[in-house]
């Protein structure tokens, strides 16, 4: 005899319910933490913005626009394209990434990053083939059009839409405190998971080995839910839709989402492995009574 009673049927049923709840809460917490990181991590946003391939694509797009305008306004392109270097684009990209993460993290619409087109205007004016009376005016027009392209390429999401949306939300809720609250949701989820795990431990306190069954089920179940969730969301084909709308934004989103998704899926895989290990230990570990008998 072990001297320890099995938990009653009600305790076991409650422990199962709690284990299922733990699996769901843990999965939702992991997915929301991943989504939160993808949306607000300054480090990730800066890295996605200044990636070599993205900057190269942006430069090509800007150069193509300059070539179009060169035909229209009759100026030579070489000197003009030289004024907008990859370094200039990278710096502006960083400013835009910081502007965006400040909105998402603090709810503050800071000054939209600006870039002075004076140097560009001079370069166009100097390289105009037919310098007439209105050459300066035409150079200004061309510089304005290039500046617009630069801003649209570097920040393919409409700034007016973001500002309008934020103003609309700010009228209804206190945005900075709502953002702070949202940022704490994964922590709250983790705390709730711990509370559920504690309750399961309480219900199975007399039989520690029995607890392995519930914890293993919850951990592996959460991992499986996360992976199933990722598969289903990826079936929606959102990155492809973004890519069709804007190649640059599509690549930025890809660079941004990939490490977050990989991290979440790896964590889910660890949960599955850990969960099944606990179940194996539960299944193959000998109860205390049998261990004592074997020792005797």
């Amino acid at each position: 005899m072990s001297g320890q009673k099995n938990p009653c049927a009600l305790s076991r049923a409650l422990a199962w319910i709690l284990a299922f709840m733990l699996a769901g809460t843990l999965a939702v917490t992991i997915m929301s933490a991943g989504a939160g990181t993808a949306l607000s991590s300054e480090d990730l946003h800066v890295r996605a913005s200044v990636s070599d391939s993205v900057v190269r694509e942006q430069k090509e797009k800007i150069d193509a626009r300059i070539r179009e305008l060169a035909e229209e306004y009759a100026f030579s392109t070489d000197a003009v394209t030289g004024t907008i270097t990859e370094e200039t684009i990278r710096e502006l990209d960083q400013e835009y990434a910081r502007w965006w993460t400040r909105i998402v993290n603090e709810g503050v619409i800071g000054d939209v990053p600006e870039w002075s087109s004076a140097e560009l205007e001079n370069a166009i004016a100097e390289n105009m083939e037919a310098a007439g009376e209105n050459a300066a005016e035409r150079a200004g027009e061309a510089a304005g059009a290039i500046e617009k392209t630069i801003h649209e390429t570097l920040m393919p999401v409409r700034k007016a839409l973001i500002t309008l949306g934020l103003k609309f939300i700010r009228k209804r809720i206190d945005l900075p405190s709502a953002i702070r609250l949202l940022g704490q949701l994964p922590l709250a989820g983790a705390a709730f998971c711990l509370a559920l795990a504690g309750l399961i431990a309480l219900l199975t306190a007399r039989k520690t080995r029995l607890g392995l069954k519930y914890f293993g089920t919850a951990a592996a179940g959460a991992g499986l839910s996360v992976i199933a969730g990722f598969i289903m969301v990826s079936l929606l084909g959102i990155p492809k839709m973004i890519l069709e709308s804007s190649v640059v934004l599509g690549h930025q989103a890809d660079i941004l989402i990939r490490p977050v998704a990989t991290g979440c899926v790896l964590f889910a895989a660890m949960l599955i492995a850990g969960g099944f290990l606990l179940l194996y230990l539960y299944r193959n570990g000998k109860p205390k009574a049998r261990r004592t008998e074997a020792a005797a």
Binding site: A19, F20, A23, G24, A27, V28, K213, G216, T217, A218, A219, A220, G221, A222, G223, L224, S225, A228, G229, M232, L235, L236, I272, G275, F276, L279, Y282, R283
Partner: peptide
């Protein structure tokens, strides 16, 4: 042995909800 199937059962509510919504 059935205990190894319990994670699938635990994943079913959330996955089922997501699949239904999808």
């Amino acid at each position: 042995t059935l205990v190894y199937l319990m994670p699938l059962a635990a994943a079913l509510p959330l996955t089922g909800l997501l699949a239904w919504a999808m």
